[in-house]
Structure formats: structure tokens, C-alpha cells
Amino acid sequence: MNHQKILYISQEINPYLPSTPMSLFGRNLPQDIQSHGYEVRTFMPKYGSINERRNQLHEVIRLSGMNISIDDNDHPLIIKVATLQPTRMQVYFIDNDDYFEGPGTKVLETESSPEDNDERSMFFVRGVIETVRKLRWDPTVIHCTGWITALAPLYIRHLYQDDPGLSRSLVVYSLRPESFEGKLDARFAEKLKMAGFTDECLQSLGGGDFDWMTLNKLGIDHSDAIVVTTPDIPAGLVEYARQSGKPVLEYPGPDGEEATTAAYHDFYQSILSQKENDSKSSD
């Protein structure tokens, strides 16, 4: 049995959201990896369209309550949790009234209020990290999927570089084809600097074209490894990942879930072994 801990930070997870390639990926991979003996926890945004009663979500009071500051404004962090049956996999939800609407919403907030996507992503990522720290659950691998998670490698590698648990984690970033139209807020880089990041950290943001491609490049820059999840990722983005010199898991192919899970399992073990060898070499 494998007792390594894998944290999945996902943009969408089925059945909490309708079946889409992304939401099915967000459910199936963690469940299948868990069946290989890994200890797994998953996080996603608490979109307003998620029916809390039907999905049996409940607030975790001991984890909620802290404020996350973005652009000099404090936003209360609310943590909810559900158990995905029959695997009993725990799914945590990051909630806040400023970025996620109440019941009755049908369109995801990332689409209905795209002007807030920069801060929504910042809040979500920071909320996940702070919750994991409160849980005192140190993941071996942190696997991020979806553009809303693209800031996670940046936060983990720089704002939390001295955290004794997170500093040892390997961060994997998945390239997905789902995108957003237009650009993020023009003050995106400024808000990140207010959060504590330097110009050097944000170098790949360039001169202010904060679009989907740029956000993904930021995720690649600060992760330890990259996964190409589908065959329809823009060629320029895949090439950017390859040129980074980091381990890249190429698209495993349409060979069924079992073969795909095996590819991810082998990839995790490969990058963990490489890290262990690098540590021995530096001793």
C-alpha cells in the first residue's frame, strides 16, 4: 500500500457540477488514485449552483473564520465539506459571499461575473492553502487542475516557501483546454504584488496581457511538473511546458481510465524518485 498524500485542487468536480470533461477529470482521477492506496483530499470552489442539501455539504466551523486580504479588502473564508460516495473521498469547498453567489445560480460565477476572476482565483488558492495548513495535513504531491488553480504553484513556492509541510510538496500543474474569454483585471499584477509577490516572481505576466494563456504560463513557471491532460491543448502552451525543462507527462491517450490512472501513478512516482535522488546528490 502507498501512504503518500495527494492534494487535488480542482476547478470543477462532478457530481457537484454537471458532467463535463473537466468535472469528470476532477472526480475520476482522485478516486482512482485513492484506490491505489494514496491518501487523497480534494478542493474546489463552492459555486452558487451547487445544491448543498442534495450533496450534503456542511460548514466546518473550526476551519472557517479567517479573513483573506485582497487589494486591501478582507474577505471571510468559509469552508464546507462533503463525502463523495461510495469511495468516501472528502471534498472541501472554498466559499465566500463576495466571490460565490447564493442558491439558485445556474451559471458559474467565473462566467457570470468574469470581472472578479482575478480576485476569485487569488481567494480560492489562498483559501485552499490556509485550510490545508489548519488541517496539519502535509501533501506529498499537490495536483492543480483548471485555470482557476494556476496561482497555486506561485503561492506555494513563494508565499509559503518556509512552511515546513508545503515546502516539501511537489506541485503538478495540469494543462486543460477550458479557457475564459478576454483578460483578467488590469490591476491583476498590482494586486499580486500587494499580496507579497515580487516582480521576479511575476516575470511571465509580461506587460499586462493577463489572458488565459499568460495565466497558464504562470502556473507552468512555478510548478515542479506539468501534465498535458488532453490532445487539444494549444501547441504553443505545450511547447512552453516542454521548454521549461521540468518533467512533462504527455497526453496518456484515450486508453480508458485504468491506463490513464496508471500513467499518473507512474508519473507521481517518477518525480518523487527524482526529487529523492536530487536530495541525495546535494547531501
Results as ranks from 00 to 15, higher is better:
99 Y>P: 12
68 I>A: 02
135 L>D: 09
125 V>W: 04
172 V>E: 05
256 G>K: 02
247 P>L: 02
264 Y>F: 11
240 Y>G: 06
245 G>F: 00
93 F>R: 01
233 I>T: 05
203 Q>F: 14
150 A>I: 11
16 Y>K: 06
208 G>H: 03
5 K>R: 15
281 S>Y: 10
61 I>S: 15
27 R>C: 06
244 S>R: 03
207 G>H: 13
263 A>Y: 02
40 V>T: 08
211 D>E: 10
248 V>N: 08
198 T>L: 12
196 G>H: 09
283 D>V: 14
94 I>A: 04
275 K>T: 10
127 G>D: 04
10 S>H: 09
83 T>V: 13
70 I>T: 04
135 L>Q: 10
193 K>M: 09
204 S>I: 14
175 L>W: 00
22 M>F: 08
275 K>L: 02
45 P>A: 02
176 R>H: 05
43 F>E: 01
185 D>R: 13
115 E>P: 04
90 Q>C: 08
220 I>G: 09
267 F>L: 08
73 N>H: 13
197 F>M: 10
53 R>A: 13
137 W>I: 07
60 V>C: 13
190 E>V: 09
83 T>K: 15
97 D>E: 15
189 A>K: 10
278 D>W: 06
177 P>K: 08
67 N>K: 14
174 S>A: 06
126 R>N: 11
21 P>A: 09
109 E>Y: 00
110 T>W: 01
142 I>G: 01
58 H>T: 11
204 S>P: 12
203 Q>L: 15
50 I>A: 03
67 N>C: 11
59 E>D: 06
283 D>R: 15
39 E>T: 13
179 S>A: 08
39 E>P: 07
97 D>A: 15
80 K>A: 07
274 Q>E: 10
138 D>G: 13
195 A>Y: 04
29 L>V: 11
170 L>K: 12
112 S>D: 06
16 Y>H: 07
232 D>S: 12
